[in-house]
Design a protein around this nucleic acid. Sequence first.
DNA 1: TTATTATTGTCGCAAAATGCGACAATAATA
DNA 2: TATTATTGTCGCATTTTGCGACAATAATAA
Lengths: 229, 229
Amino acid sequence: MQGDDYLHHIAYDSVIFGFSGEKLKILILEYHNTGLFALPGGFVRTNENLNDAVQRGLKERTGLDQIFLEQFYTFGDVARYKPEVMKQIIQANKVPDEDLSWLLDRFISVAYYALINYAEVIPTPDDLSDSCGWYDVDQLPPLMLDHAQIVQKALETLRENINRKLVGGNLLPARFTMKELQHVYEAILGEKLHRGTFQRKMLSLGVLQRHEKQYSGAANKAPFLYSFG
Amino acid sequence: MQGDDYLHHIAYDSVIFGFSGEKLKILILEYHNTGLFALPGGFVRTNENLNDAVQRGLKERTGLDQIFLEQFYTFGDVARYKPEVMKQIIQANKVPDEDLSWLLDRFISVAYYALINYAEVIPTPDDLSDSCGWYDVDQLPPLMLDHAQIVQKALETLRENINRKLVGGNLLPARFTMKELQHVYEAILGEKLHRGTFQRKMLSLGVLQRHEKQYSGAANKAPFLYSFG
DNA sequence: TTATTATTGTCGCAAAATGCGACAATAATA
DNA sequence: TATTATTGTCGCATTTTGCGACAATAATAA
């Protein structure tokens, strides 16, 4: 990780949403020996597209390719410049032979959110962090720098886009029941929805494919499975 | 404009919308002796918030303060890195005693759009450009780099936000008629709206203040004037 | 003074979208 | 065969929207 390989002053942070146990979750990593929690982030190589850099980071952290990924804001306040925090992280991970001084400069961070199928992810820490795990959006640990603010804005954007971009399905397996889809919407919006109205609305969009029923073994009517497209 | 005063690799571009003659317009500047047209942009000082840098640039270019300003996307493709274009601009404006080599590096650009009252603006070129003027959004000159794409995305964002953020009023004087407001909406959306429906919708929002009538001298009923808040 | 004309504010009504409860169908168990 | 929980769908009231029409009005023309 030489200084010349990356664009200085520019970073990205990603808010990776998953869905499990009827809860919306976010992937958070913890840096070695610092007690610092952070969003997965990274830097842009000098010959690499910004969007590609984020895709690359996501691949490394989740093992997934072809992810729903969207940029939502670029954070550029001076107040987010805290070199002592970065110094702390570097010192806890001192690797000789590397000039990491460029990491102590001021950074502007382009923030993205990703929607992924929780079940397919293998959370993988990087060199600097020793854990990479899921947290409920409403039970996050204290995050470093302005990362809590970034999460907040990601959630707002997600709520605004939930109908415009059919965002919901990206958080589920390829096939799902209407109830599961409704739970995703409820978790994102933070409110209960009416079952009948929700089903009618979804079906009227004409983007759901209906498949065979899912026999759960429970003593009641079995629901259909659906997929997008 | 020393290299140490600004954050390297980071720029901003602004799409400044105005409204006149029932048309949506954008402020475009032309660089000296190059035939290059561009969006007004600039750089971020090392101790300056990103948002403040854009406000500062807007103030210099329009004379206006307290503008409706919103960030909408950050452009970071490698393809937008064309040092020969920058070199052309610099050479046409050679100022001695300055090291401008940092301008030839790759830049990531944070794009903003602004909505302003056309009548209050005094378009002002900067040192590098010899004109700064209004162009119809559908009759723009060929813009350098990816600036046409930036304009396109600004328009899309504006359309998406038109109802969510009461964007329309920022393009008009403090007091305006319902018809003028409708023309703004039509220019942004690119379609005709029904007069009755539009008026009913706007009034139902409860954010318009009704004032005295505007007697235009025409042989017909005089419209009320409105303001926001 | 009175008719004419263009434009405005508002209304009525049909069509579409939404909120909410209810019913029959169904997959298992008792 | 009855029971139970859940599902798919429908009916109906309410709200929102699209669209035309009417009366009111400010000036001009007769």
